[in-house]
């Protein structure tokens, strides 16, 4: 009897918890979309904020987000993939390997507000970049380094050793084997790393507040990188917390929510596609 009660209790606790988790997600997604979607208008998407006509436009914020994503990915991918190649292909000293891996773990545990502070001190003040998208992007590079490194490393491990030996057997040097055999084999890890990084950059706000700032000017790519600008998340924060414009905030939240869903879907599809291709 006591046994039955125990089983029943544990089972109901499990189901209850799973229902709570799913309920939370459903509530968040539906609430944000219902409150946000009606507020999205073409005027808002295509314009910039203007004090004269009292309108709010988020085009500059969308472009800033795009610029920051592009700039951060361009830098982080070679760095992260290179570090992963070093760890799996070159490194022999156990101590150096564990030091690098420990450093990567530490980096992924550091809160984004600390990245923001150090980014402000190092990129904005010390390297004299001022508050700019470039400084924000470089701060995000450090944040996303462990992610790209880990996904690349995992896919490097799945490249069979015999491929490398085949390359060496044909007389190719180490670099040639890496360039022609190993790197093409780990493209899936790099793409997964990209998708995860994009998701993280899209959602990041604390690290950008003091590095990229909150201006809403409409700029081209290179001009934009040199000047301050708010990404979508930072704009959401400013509109909600400092200006009390909840309609705009929810519209941005709905856009972010849809992008998050899209990225999730994309990551799952890419994972599936490469798994299938690998098993062929």
């Amino acid at each position: 009897m006591k046994r039955k009660a125990y089983i029943l209790m544990m089972q109901s606790l499990m189901i209850l918890s799973a229902v709570i988790t799913c309920g939370l997600v459903l509530f968040l997604v539906i609430y944000v979309l219902v409150k946000g979607l009606p507020n999205i208008t073409w005027e808002m998407l295509s314009g910039k904020p203007s004090y004269l006509s009292q309108t709010i436009g988020i085009l500059p914020d969308i472009l800033n987000t795009l610029y920051i994503i592009i700039a951060a990915l361009v830098v982080v991918i070679p760095l992260g993939a290179g570090a992963a190649v070093y760890l799996t292909e070159y490194a022999q000293n156990r101590k150096i390997i564990s030091l690098i891996e420990y450093a990567a773990e530490t980096l992924s545990g550091i809160p984004s507000i600390i990245y923001g502070l150090v980014g402000m001190l190092f990129f904005c003040s010390f390297l004299n970049m001022q508050t700019s998208l470039l400084a924000g992007a470089l701060t995000l590079v450090i944040m996303n380094l462990p992610t790209v490194m880990r996904t690349t490393q995992e896919s490097l491990k799945t490249v069979p050793q015999s491929y490398r030996e085949g390359g060496f057997g044909l007389g190719a040097g180490k670099w040639r084997v890496i360039r022609t055999v190993v790197l093409p084999g780990c493209i899936d890890g790099i793409i997964t790393g990209c998708i995860l990084s994009v998701g993280r950059i899209l959602g990041e706000s604390a690290a950008l507040l003091f590095t990229a700032g909150f201006a809403h000017a409409l700029n081209g790519f290179f001009e934009g990188l040199g000047s301050a600008g708010a990404t979508l998340t930072v704009a959401l924060y400013v509109y909600a917390k400092e200006r009390g414009e909840f309609g705009v905030a929810f519209a941005i939240a709905a856009i972010l929510m849809m992008l998050t869903l899209l990225i999730d879907l994309l990551a799952a599809l890419v994972g599936k596609y490469f798994k299938k291709r690998r098993s062929l």
Binding site: T21, L28, V32, G203, V234, L236, F250, L256, I263
Partner: peptide, 23 residues
């Protein structure tokens, strides 16, 4: 289904949590 719900939860930007929390 539940796993994808959990991974979505991880992907939602923190300012969105803040906004919903606020309102």
């Amino acid at each position: 289904i539940v796993s994808s719900a959990v991974s979505l939860l991880a992907g939602i930007p923190s300012v969105v949590y803040g906004l919903v929390g606020m309102l």
